[in-house]
Write a protein that binds this DNA or RNA. Structure first.
Length: 299
DNA sequence: ATGAACGTTATA
DNA sequence: TATAACGTTCAT
């Protein structure tokens, strides 16, 4: 699936052992140590090359050369800081998402073009979006268990070092925005699914319609959103405590833990997120604060 | 506050 | 029935 994420690169056969459903690949070791060194303000105010998101989207030839070593494996440019990697996702991805939320990131035509290249596979993406909406293709094991065709698309979208990140890691492409169920405009950023009334909002929040059953009232499990960076990870790191302790811990890999599920169900912003999402409102601020508190945005 | 362990629910 | 993983509790 074109929007599926796998930053771990090709797996070795013996890495895909521990789970039948999840292709297990160890994360790059650096994932373990990085932790979002930059906050939103940093991305917005610092014009340095290190945080020049536009530059990353549309890298200069020099950057492209730097980022494109001899072999095809995606590899970050040596001159860039550890923005590519972080426990909860990529710094770059994070920054870009924040900027997009804030409406500060404008896609250049070239970037759009490039992204739409990666979006050739809009069909599977559509399917994933639909599945995410119905709560069906939750696909433990990788945002919808990667079939052979999907893997093909993954690799075909990796012509450059940037496409796998821009096209797959987060929905940079405008084409992917509607697919992911997001709308932007007039300063408002909201999930189309969340915008829907009633149960749909809760579904978007991670509650399956079934889990919202009126009668039982027992503990119901929320579902992963399928859209956040961790959800898009396809692989377990096999190194975190959750992976190492899976039998006892019963927990998903730390790097795959849905951001939405990290929030308390009744926590701040829950209701407003259900009824709608206003960028300029306190919800956004709260969200940022929450992400900070999650350690995702520490700066 | 954080992480480990366990109970429980959801799904194949 | 097996497995994955969410939610809760408890120890640190």
């Amino acid at each position: 699936m074109s929007t599926a994420v796998d930053i771990a690169g090709p797996s070795s056969p013996d890495q895909a052992h521990s789970s039948a459903k999840i292709p297990n690949e160890p994360l790059r070791p650096s994932l373990k140590r990085s932790n979002h060194p930059y906050g939103l303000s940093h991305y917005i105010s610092t014009p340095s090359q290190a945080v020049d998101v536009k530059g990353l989207i549309q890298p200069s030839p020099a950057q492209q050369r730097a980022a494109q070593p001899a072999h095809a494996k995606p590899r970050r440019a040596p001159s860039w800081p550890d923005m590519w990697e972080s426990p909860s996702g990529l710094h770059l991805a994070h920054a870009a998402e924040l900027l997009m939320r804030a409406g500060l990131l404008a896609l250049t035509p070239a970037a759009t073009e490039q992204a739409s290249l990666g979006a050739q596979s809009s069909q599977p993406a559509k399917r994933e979006a639909a599945e995410a909406k119905t709560g069906k293709g939750e696909g433990e094991g990788g945002g919808g268990g990667s079939g052979p065709e999907e893997e093909e698309e993954d690799s075909s979208g990796c012509g450059t070092d940037f496409q796998p990140f821009l096209g797959a890691w987060f929905p940079f492409s405008p084409a992917l925005f509607p697919l992911a169920g997001f709308q932007m405009g007039g300063g408002h950023w909201r999930s189309a699914a969340m915008g829907a009334e009633g149960i749909e909002g809760l579904v978007a929040e991670g509650y399956s319609p079934g889990s919202l059953g009126t009668s039982s009232g027992g503990k119901r499990k929320r579902k992963r959103c399928g859209e956040c960076v961790p959800c898009r990870r396809q692989t377990n790191c096999e190194q975190c405590s959750s992976c190492r302790n899976r039998k006892r811990g019963h927990q998903i890999c730390k790097y795959r833990k849905c951001e939405e599920l990290k929030r308390k169900p009744g926590g701040p912003g829950f209701e407003s997120r259900v009824s709608g999402f206003d960028l300029r409102g306190s919800d956004f601020t709260l969200g940022l604060a929450q992400e900070r508190s999650n350690g995702a945005l520490d700066g």
